[in-house]
Simulated assay, not measured.
Amino acid sequence: MTEPKSRRRGAELEHAILDAAWAELSEHGYARFTVEGVATRAGTSKPVLYRRWKGRAELALAAWDHRVPASREPIDTGSLRADLVLLFTRISRRAGAMMNEMVAGVMADAFRYPEVADLLRDRLTRPSSLTRAVEDVVARAVARGELPPVRLGLRAARAPLDLVRNEHITCGQEIDEATIEELVDEVYLPLLRGLAVG
């Protein structure tokens, strides 16, 4: 085993590894993405990476989260529709930064490796900054009287991401404003109204 090339620790080392992982993904794609390649580029060893991430899928997703963090800015335009258009636009920009080949590769790994399927299931079944943003947008619309009280479960709160991700994977390109408006007007607003309580 070779000695790590530097004595970086903590956040500094983690940033270097995630930057190296993103560079490897960008240059080689997910099919040729390896933990060994990331370790070499980051100037560290494979065991250092495996102490933080279980495998290449988890490392690739962590690199994407690091490179394109979810926006923390609250969405409050004063209108439910405008809030949703802005929310879908933010999701689309973030999803657009993730290479479709990487998405396909991680999903293929999920079919072959149970631990990758568990990783994806965990990411999709827990509350996140996105689902909290959707809940906040809906709560403000209810408070303004634009929506009746609704029962917003996790799947419904996650639906904007699912809709946008499906468009990106299916079409393989940036989603335009007209498509975002169609998703909001023809799919998500009717869904929210259908979730009215009582």
Results as ranks from 00 to 15, higher is better:
Ala70Thr: 09
Leu49Tyr: 09
Trp53Pro: 08
Ala178Lys: 15
Ser129Cys: 02
Ala196Pro: 06
Leu152Ala: 06
Glu36Cys: 07
Leu49Glu: 02
Gly145Val: 07
Glu14Gly: 01
Ala16Pro: 08
Met99Lys: 11
Ile91Cys: 00
Met98Asn: 04
Leu61Ile: 03
Glu73Thr: 07
Tyr113His: 10
Glu101Ile: 03
Ser129His: 08
Arg7Val: 05
Trp64Asp: 11
Ala31Asp: 15
Val85Met: 01
Leu84Val: 10
Leu84Ser: 02
Val35Ile: 14
His168Phe: 02
Leu120His: 09
Glu58Met: 12
Leu192Trp: 00
Ile169Glu: 14
Arg155Thr: 07
Ala139Ser: 14
Ala23Asp: 11
Gly153Leu: 05
Leu119Asn: 04
Thr77Lys: 04
Pro127Leu: 00
Arg67Trp: 04
Asn166Trp: 12
Ile91Ser: 03
Arg132Ala: 13
Met98Asp: 11
Ala156Leu: 07
Arg121Phe: 09
Leu25Pro: 02
Val138Gly: 01
Leu61Ala: 03
Ala16Ile: 10
Met102Lys: 02
Pro114Leu: 01
Val68Phe: 13
Arg9Pro: 07
Gly172Trp: 10
Arg165Gly: 11
Ala42Thr: 08
Ala157Lys: 09
Arg140Asp: 02
Arg123Thr: 07
Tyr188Pro: 08
Asn100Lys: 09
Gly55Thr: 02
Glu186Trp: 12
Thr34Ala: 05
Val48Met: 13
Asp136Cys: 00
Arg94Tyr: 03
Asp122Asn: 15
Glu181Arg: 14
Glu182Arg: 15
Leu120Tyr: 04
Phe111Pro: 05
Ala110Cys: 05
Gly43Asp: 09
Val197Gln: 13
Arg7Tyr: 10
Thr34Asp: 13
Gly29Ser: 10
Arg123Met: 12
Gly78Trp: 00
His168Arg: 15
Leu163Pro: 05
Ala23Arg: 12
Phe111Asp: 12
Leu183Tyr: 10
